[in-house]
Simulated assay, not measured.
Amino acid sequence: MILEPLQPGNGPIRSQHYLPATGRNVLWGRLPCAADEAVLDIESGDDVTIDTLSHEGILEDQGRDPRRFFGGHGVDGHYVLDDAIAIAASDYPRDRAVDGPHVVTGPIRVRGAKPGDLLKMTLVEALPRVPYGVISNRHTKGALPGEYPQGLETVSAYAEVDEDADGTRVGTLPLVHGGPKLVRFPLAPFLGIMGVAVSGDTRPHSVPPGPHGGNIDINLLTAGNSLYLPVQVAGALAYVGDPHFAQGDGEVALTAMEASLRVTVRFEVVPQADALQQFGRLIGPLAETRDFLVPTGMSLDLDEAVQHCVRAAISLLGARYGMDSHLAYAYLSAATDFNISQVVDIVKGVHARIRVSDFDGVPRHAG
């Protein structure tokens, strides 16, 4: 193994706030709502180092025993995370028939955040906690539900982290089960779940994403990039989870390379007036990288998700640059890629990649 495990409390912790994925700091299968108590209070602009746990290896169809599950793939017990063992062995009140699989760390109250504002969540750092991951196809829920898995059992492909000659870390999978030949692919760690609490006293299921964010699975949200979310409750009550080492757009087999991360996230409140000037009125998540503005669209129907994303992109260009809607529509057709975020989380996701360099020299629209 090329990486030492980052057990709770051990190893590098970048920020003054540290939130382990233990005890009351986690929800399993549900996302926070307004009725939940924050496990940490911070100021806008603060960084928080957070341990996240992959659900792969702890679920019932994998034996709910990560020592045994990963041991079956040759992983020494030293490399199995203590917090994964603890939650799998706990009596956490999760009903697999009605709750999701994801372990979520939080919620975090950001002082001063209120409905109408945006919460900006920036991934500052993402450190692998283990040198392996799992890619599963289960419960006939992938992009080809009538074809895979081919039997009744969950198929969980074990993937290892390796290093190329230049020291670059890559993921590996065998070409044939148990075979020696490997396919190697780039790693790009990110969080599949970044979100804010919903109003009311009902915790949402952890699988379908929505205006609150949640399980959006946008693989552009690697270190250095940000997600903006409309605040729904006082304090925002933010959370993270569903860590990935790698994912292709679409995530067609149901999961990607799921593996636990220690992340540092910066939380910043964007007041309503500033939010309106920068982005217009957002009704759902918006990502931002150095190169792209990334509006999103979501729906049970993929065609509708694309339509929602196109409308969001047109609205964004109008609010930010004063661009006429018919010209924004034309520009998007000529110059913008629309990518499938995922097709496996009940609510399907699409995101657009609008190049900010195309608007160099264009003044921001004053509204």
Rank of each mutant, 00 (worst) to 15 (best):
V39M: 07
V231H: 02
D95W: 02
L3Y: 15
A275M: 08
D291T: 10
P186K: 14
D36S: 04
G213N: 14
M194L: 13
V269E: 02
A86T: 14
H177P: 14
D117L: 10
L175M: 05
D164A: 15
Q7H: 15
P5S: 03
P107A: 12
N339E: 13
H17R: 07
A159R: 02
L286P: 00
Y329D: 05
A197M: 09
A86H: 14
P295Y: 08
L221K: 08
L229K: 02
A34H: 14
V98Q: 07
P145L: 00
T105R: 06
G250M: 11
V124T: 03
L40G: 05
D65Y: 05
R355K: 05
Q150D: 00
A273C: 03
D83G: 05
L81W: 03
D303P: 08
E163A: 15
L220S: 13
H308K: 13
L300R: 06
H244N: 07
D217F: 11
A313D: 05
V343D: 06
V198R: 15
G74H: 14
G23H: 09
T168D: 12
E268N: 14
R262G: 08
I283V: 13
G214I: 02
D274Y: 04
M194Y: 10
G280P: 09
P131S: 13
P186G: 06
I135H: 01
L227K: 09
A253Y: 05
A223R: 15
V231P: 01
S226P: 09
G63W: 00
A34M: 11
V198S: 13
A234H: 11
D82A: 12
D249E: 08
V207C: 14
S156H: 06
D345Q: 15
M1E: 08
P243H: 01
R355F: 10
V306Y: 04
L127N: 13
I87V: 13
R353C: 06
P211N: 10
G72R: 06
I2S: 08
R24G: 07
T222Q: 11
L81G: 01
G63N: 06
G146T: 14
H78C: 06
V26I: 15
P149Q: 05
H365E: 13
A273S: 11
P8S: 11
G63D: 01
K114V: 07
V270C: 12
N137I: 12
D162W: 02
P32F: 02
D83A: 15
S357Q: 05
Q278W: 10
P107Y: 04
G112M: 10
R67M: 06
D41C: 12
N339M: 07
Q150C: 01
D83V: 00
P230E: 04
K120L: 02
A84F: 07
